[in-house]
Amino acid sequence: MTPLTAFFAKFIGAYAILAGAWLFFRREAALGLIDRISNDPVFESMIGVLRLVFGLAVISAHNRWDGWLASLVSALGWIGLASGAATMFLPTGFLRRMVERMRFREQLPLYALVSALLGAVLLLGGLSA
């Protein structure tokens, strides 16, 4: 494993754990933020830009597919790039419709758990280097 793979795994993993904990313990704040972002074209575009920047940063520095951890980090970079571009360029309200389709409000604890578990896998993988 390269030092860059370990760095990105620890960085993304720690973020995902904290984001999952925030979703779980600050449910109303998280739902309020999601509602605000998904109903405001400016915030929706800003989130798209942030996702795009994250994706570009990861894939420009780390587009490696050798080993499960490197592949997971690279895949998350490509997902960030694709979701950022989609959020930026698809019609206004697309994000809101996706949040509704995902039943985010009802399934929030599940999304929090998935985020925390993915984060733990990444963090432990990065720390094992």
Score class of each variant (00 low, 15 high):
Ala21Tyr: 01
Trp22Val: 08
Leu23Trp: 14
Leu23His: 12
Phe24Tyr: 08
Phe25Tyr: 09
Phe25Cys: 10
Arg26Gln: 14
Arg26His: 14
Arg27Gln: 09
Ala29Arg: 15
Ala29Trp: 15
Leu31Ser: 03
Gly32Tyr: 05
Gly32Arg: 05
Ile34Gly: 01
Ile34Lys: 05
Asp35Lys: 08
Asp35Pro: 03
Arg36Ile: 02
Arg36Thr: 08
Ile37Glu: 00
Ser38Leu: 07
Ser38Ala: 12
Asn39Ile: 02
Asn39Tyr: 04
Asp40Arg: 09
Pro41Ala: 09
Val42Met: 13
Val42Glu: 10
Phe43Val: 06
Glu44His: 13
Ser45Val: 14
Met46Ala: 15
Met46Phe: 15
Ile47Lys: 05
Leu50Tyr: 07
Leu52Gln: 04
Val53Tyr: 04
Gly55Phe: 00
Leu56Ile: 11
Ala57Tyr: 01
Ala57Asp: 02
Ala57Pro: 01
Ala57Leu: 05
Ala61Thr: 12
His62Glu: 01
Trp65Pro: 06
Gly67Val: 04
Gly67Ile: 11
Leu69Phe: 02
Ala70Asn: 11
Ser71His: 07
Ser71Lys: 14
Ser71Tyr: 04
Leu72His: 08
Val73His: 00
Val73Asp: 00
Ser74Asp: 04
Ser74Met: 13
Ala75Asp: 07
Ala75Leu: 13
Leu76Arg: 06
Ile79Gln: 12
Ile79Asp: 12
Gly80Arg: 00
Gly80Asn: 01
Leu81Lys: 06
Gly84Met: 02
Ala85Asp: 06
Thr87Pro: 01
Thr87Ser: 03
Met88Pro: 02
Phe89His: 13
Phe89Asp: 12
Leu90Cys: 07
Pro91Gln: 14
Pro91His: 13
Thr92Met: 13
Thr92Phe: 11
Gly93Cys: 06
Phe94Gly: 08
Phe94Val: 09
Leu95Val: 10
Arg96His: 13
Arg96Ser: 13
Arg96Phe: 07
Met98Ala: 12
Met98Gln: 10
Glu100Phe: 03
Arg101Met: 14
Arg103Pro: 02
Arg103Asn: 09
Phe104His: 02
Phe104Lys: 03
Glu106Tyr: 06
Glu106Asn: 03
Gln107Ile: 04
Gln107Asp: 10
Leu110Asp: 09
Leu110Gln: 05
Leu110Ser: 06
